[in-house]
Design a binder for these strands. Structure first.
Lengths: 244, 244
DNA sequence: CCTAGCGACTGCTTTAGATCAGCCCATCCT
DNA sequence: AGGATGGGCTGATCTAAAGCAGTCGCTAGG
């Protein structure tokens, strides 16, 4: 099987462990129950008790929490290869909502499927828990960003992280990537107003670091951006297969 | 065994599932390797590759990330019954540091111990993953707080969450709790300056909601505080069988 | 006993980012 | 064709919280 033919999740996990044929088969089996969702309509509402998780195979999703005052905080984005709602399998109610940003393709994974896969292929379990740990590390990094970085650094860091995540599943590079997010999405993610997001993007553009326009992010000066954001990708743990 | 004699972790997990004798025994076995650490000296440094996790049995610890500019963001506190570094068992390097705030007692848990316990008592595995999910939900809530709440609401929310967590392991209540944190800890947690923390505490005190003084938090108006913070404890998932 | 150091606390000044109030340009709808 | 809608963009004003500079009180150490 060529690299291109693999599911994005498989590509991602392969960056962590070299998976055997049996494990690859187990992973593909998790992709059986295919589902589509349309952009804009929530897949899961916060407060709803959810029975299943999903593996995103195409498109973008955001997970967010709604505040009583109507504002929302986007907690994370899911791109192809990411799990969706893995955590809410164990907590009784989903503590946030999921909204597809574009039309998406996902595989539904029942709790029982997951537990079966875990029992049969322990190394696969480890790999999936690695992915969950990495997602959590990203949330933590995001927290640090909002708490301690100024608006420009926050934006720079966010774009770099996204670029790095997308590169791992083969739909982006150090040059840039396609990105369906609006400035409102960025605002809700970074804890800024949409107006300010606009200004920040202008500043980054005018200082020749990065352009975000017409659904495409272009890194003009990747190194400069890394410096501005103090971006250290260690938390993404892309160091390459550990268990071989 | 009476409730008081249980380890704090056991008490906490019992809020989620009623554990059998065998499972309780497995849990106690995880507590064999006892360790002590003194206040102020980091247990784990960020960047260090760590082999073990810990279960905190007495004292307080904070986990934080250091920024290049010298500021630090405290990500979470660990109180008795909490795991410490569970995530870094799977990621190659610890992405944050752990500092005991007071002298502490903890049980060291090797990766292999944990995997053995998981294999032997699957329900225990589920319970521990529940605890991990809950920790992650707290980080997410914390993220929302920093991104979307003003300083007063942030402080109120933080104190309520801590109170709720401590009550679960029996060392706090709706009336208040003992708390060894300084205003600097609060500042680094909430993304505020220490100066502003002081003002915020004064405001909360003067409006008769809560007092934080001499290492003790006293809730004067728990309901009012909940309203100010828009505190919805659902994400702490305490719904379940409280020791039946 | 004196001093060093930490934590709590305060007033004054500055600034990052919010809020308000708009405009422009597509696309979509009827 | 004529609105409505959504996203991007801008200038002017306002404000929450930072930063600075310093006091006070307690504890520990020489």
């Amino acid at each position: 099987m060529t690299v291109e033919a693999l599911s994005p999740l498989t590509r991602k996990l392969s960056a962590f462990v070299a998976l055997s044929e049996v494990e690859l088969a187990g992973l593909e089996r998790l992709h059986q129950r295919r589902r589509s969702f349309v952009a804009g309509r929530d897949m899961v509402h916060q407060g709803q008790s959810s029975q299943a998780a999903y593996i995103l195979s195409a498109g973008w999703v955001c997970s967010y929490k709604l505040q009583a005052d109507g504002t929302r905080q986007i907690v994370d984005f899911q791109v192809p290869g990411d799990f969706l709602g893995l955590r809410s399998v164990l907590l009784r109610t989903s503590d946030h909502s999921f909204e597809p940003i574009v039309d998406i393709e996902a595989a539904e994974v029942l709790t029982s499927d997951l537990l079966d896969a875990f029992a049969q292929t322990p190394r696969l379990a480890t790999a999936i828990l690695w992915a969950a740990s990495r997602d959590e590390a990203m949330v933590v990094e995001h927290l640090v960003g909002i708490g301690r970085r100024d608006a420009n650094a926050r934006m720079a860091h966010f774009l770099l992280e996204l670029g790095s995540r997308l590169a791992l599943v083969g739909i982006g590079s150090k040059e840039g990537f396609d990105c369906p997010l609006t400035q409102y999405h960025l605002a809700d993610t970074l804890g800024l107003s949409a107006v300010h997001v606009n200004r920040v993007l202008r500043q980054l553009r005018e200082s020749g670091l990065v352009t975000f326009r017409d659904g495409h992010v272009t890194f003009h000066d990747h190194g400069g951006l890394v410096k501005l954001a103090e971006f250290d990708p260690a938390y993404l743990d892309h160091a390459g297969p550990l268990l071989e």
